[in-house]
Design a protein around this nucleic acid. Sequence first.
DNA 1: ATGATGTATCTATATACTTAAATATGTCAA
DNA 2: TTGACATATTTAAGTATATAGATACATCAT
Lengths: 103, 103
Amino acid sequence: MVTLESNSDIGTLAKQLWALGDPVRLEIIQILPTRPTCHNACNVSTIAGRIGLSQPATSHHLRILRQAGIVTCEKKCRDMIYWIDLEAGSAVGERIQNLIGSS
Amino acid sequence: MVTLESNSDIGTLAKQLWALGDPVRLEIIQILPTRPTCHNACNVSTIAGRIGLSQPATSHHLRILRQAGIVTCEKKCRDMIYWIDLEAGSAVGERIQNLIGSS
DNA sequence: ATGATGTATCTATATACTTAAATATGTCAA
DNA sequence: TTGACATATTTAAGTATATAGATACATCAT
């Protein structure tokens, strides 16, 4: 059952790894904070400016990260602020270790 | 300098994560041993049979994993045997943790 | 109305897969 | 040993699908 469970999780893990497997999105991850805050560059426009991409394109990448469960967002005032889902993020790292060391 | 170094590594890390971000390749990772051995299913044909894919397609996925430095291969007799590069593999997991916890 | 974000649509590029051909290595008979 | 065949893998060519990015439009709060 554990096998079945982890097996069905493979699609999810692959999705998360794929979402992280892009230089632009890794750069976004580096910029994003780990907690919801307005102090740093956590709204889409500022992130777009820092990585040198248009706002829609940045929004697109953020959506991919969000759908993979790696980042979370919330409407604060008039901005949409993004931050990293620490739990999900570190779970990805752990799953890789478990997967590789299991054979 | 650490920043610059880790910055130039981002492309490599992205490539490794992208290589791992595919259900088929994760399945291959699950099958592959962590040391060169002929006992298990470590040659291309057997792997192809286990994941239900053609040999060329399997070879293609193995090539991607190899170019990302996640698996290693060596010619043994007439077969090409593959195994996981443990060091590189666990380094990926660690880098994710460091990247996410840094902000 | 204004400013910020998300969605839709479209184009260029990249990826995954298959079939077919090439390469390399080992086996067997003469 | 030599030549012919068999096996395993890689590479190439071609096609269908997926993705990244831009532009334009819709939405929502101030």
